[in-house]
């Protein structure tokens, strides 16, 4: 088994002006996906992230305020999951609920140093 990080990129929820009803139903879908992964025992962890951010960069450690990228490409959260290979990780990502909001999932394998 390998570990993968699923990184969720998409527009910020605040800009989408979803109604309370839509938010509730979307939450239900996230809930369903997460429960499914938990039952399969493949979810290692993960969180949603606040949209606001600080970036510290350069030799001078300059601190700047986010969000930085275009709002369409905001990192909204991540999961770490267990999967056989990248194809299975892609398969698991099919349940990501925000494709219809132009969201996307980036699948990255966690690097393990082989001794």
């Amino acid at each position: 088994m390998k570990e993968f990080m699923l990184i969720f990129l998409g527009p910020s929820y605040a800009e989408l002006k979803l109604s309370p009803e839509e938010m509730q139903s979307r939450m239900g879908k996230w809930w369903g996906w997460q429960s499914k992964m938990e039952e399969a025992g493949i979810l290692r962890g993960g969180h949603a992230l606040h949209a606001s951010a600080k970036r510290i960069s350069g030799e001078s450690r300059t601190v700047s305020d986010g969000p930085f990228a275009e709002s369409k490409e905001l990192v909204g959260g991540y999961y770490i999951i267990k999967a056989k290979d990248v194809n299975q990780a892609i398969e698991i990502s099919q349940d990501y609920p925000d494709f219809d909001l132009n969201g996307s999932v980036e699948v990255r394998e966690v690097m393990v140093f082989e001794q």
């Binding site: 929820y13 605040a14 309370p20 938010m23 979307r26 939450m27 809930w31 949603a48 959260g77």
Partner: peptide, 16 residues
Amino acid sequence: VQDTFIKAMQTWRSEL
């Protein structure tokens, strides 16, 4: 209020 719901939606994902 809208903002509160966005936060609820995101944090309740993992546990209600």
